[in-house]
């Protein structure tokens, strides 16, 4: 029971969750921006792909910093190692898929 009341007290004392609200607004803005760029045909395809990729990366950063507590840790920062590995694998998957699906560069989309 001791633990339970601690949890409730911590919850009551913390005030409005500003970090979450800012993160929520930012993530919605980034999503809507990408949607508008695509639906409105705001750019030619090549810069469009590049821009929405950049927005996607920013979105990842927002999620990590505002919601996933990347800066908080007790003990060794295992999550940073996992994220580093994650970046390596994501790059491999995205770059690899583009390489493969353009048949090693022989097909221009």
């Amino acid at each position: 029971m001791a633990h339970t009341s601690e949890g409730a007290a911590r919850h009551a004392a913390s005030g409005p969750p500003w970090m979450h609200i800012i993160g929520f607004v930012l993530s919605i803005v980034l999503t809507l921006a990408a949607l508008w760029l695509v639906l409105g045909h705001a750019m030619r395809p090549a810069p469009l792909f590049f821009t929405i990729m950049v927005l996607a990366v920013l979105q990842i950063a927002v999620q990590l910093f505002f919601f996933m507590h990347i800066t908080e840790s007790y003990g060794p920062a295992w999550h940073v190692w996992m994220l580093a590995l994650g970046v390596v694998l994501v790059v491999a998957i995205v770059a690899g898929s583009i390489w493969i699906m353009t048949f090693g560069g022989d097909v221009a989309y």
């Binding site: 493969i100 048949f103 090693g104 560069g105």
Partner: peptide
């Protein structure tokens, strides 16, 4: 290696 026969080319 599950779809070599797609023919993604010698490099891939």
């Amino acid at each position: 290696h599950h779809f070599f026969t797609m023919g993604a080319g010698p490099g891939v």
